[in-house]
């Protein structure tokens, strides 16, 4: 019984990581970086099995994005209408961060603002010093929008995960943000992204 329990605890965990610290998904065996909260391949497969395709947000139809060859192949098999685009990595984007561990609670916090980095070494230990990540880097270069078959040319929609790269805003501490969510108009062949709809910098609402 004890051995079985120990195998449950340590056995599965031992199988779920590679020597380089990457994680092996228990469901699909996809290997992904440990910076992801969940298996990205499974995440996009779930979008396909989630049946709420007629979701509305802010009175606009929500367009779903799938990423990864597996989800795209599955979507085609399901007969969904797709606009396939390549997810390019652009060096123009950078979002800086620092990770600190609270010595009292053990909680790790992430800060993104130099002004929030107080001289508080008595309480916080630096886990990752100031560094930046590129928000245009995704786990796969394959991406597609799922287009509702009854979408009419000129209809305005909301895209929660924009595939093409657009600058959302920049900040005087050096960060350049990528537009991840945006309103767009379907022109019959593709989505025309309205960058101003969700751009940041001067936020009103």
């Amino acid at each position: 019984m004890l051995i079985k329990r120990l195998l449950e605890i340590f056995g599965t965990n031992a199988q779920s990581k590679t020597k380089r610290g990457e994680i092996i998904c228990k469901e699909c065996n996809f290997i992904y970086a440990n910076t992801f909260d969940e298996c990205p391949d499974c995440k996009y497969m779930k979008i396909l099995t989630d049946r709420s395709f007629d979701e509305l947000s802010e009175n606009l139809r929500v367009i779903r994005t799938i990423r990864g060859a597996r989800a795209i192949k599955a979507a085609k098999e399901m007969g969904l209408k797709l606009i396939e685009l390549r997810a390019e990595v652009s060096d123009q984007f950078k979002v800086k961060y620092k990770k600190k561990k609270d010595k009292l609670t053990g909680k790790i916090i992430t800060i993104g603002d130099y002004r929030a980095d107080h001289h508080d070494s008595w309480r916080y230990k630096t886990v990752v010093d100031w560094t930046s990540r590129n928000p245009s880097k995704f786990f796969s270069p394959f991406a597609a929008y799922i287009v509702p078959k009854d979408l009419k040319s000129g209809e305005r929609v909301l895209i929660n995960d924009v595939i093409t790269n657009h600058v959302s805003g920049s900040w005087n501490q050096g960060d350049v943000y990528r537009l991840s969510k945006s309103e767009a108009t379907w022109n019959g062949r593709g989505f025309v992204i309205d960058v101003g709809s969700y751009a940041i910098g001067d936020i009103i609402g």
């Binding site: 992430t110 993104g112 603002d113 900040w171 005087n172 001067d202 936020i203 609402g205």
Partner: peptide, 16 residues
């Protein structure tokens, strides 16, 4: 009520 926030204003800290 509507608010305006600029990322560069002094009383704003950015979190992720």
């Amino acid at each position: 009520a509507c608010l305006r926030v600029k990322l560069n204003q002094d009383n704003v800290k950015i979190v992720h």
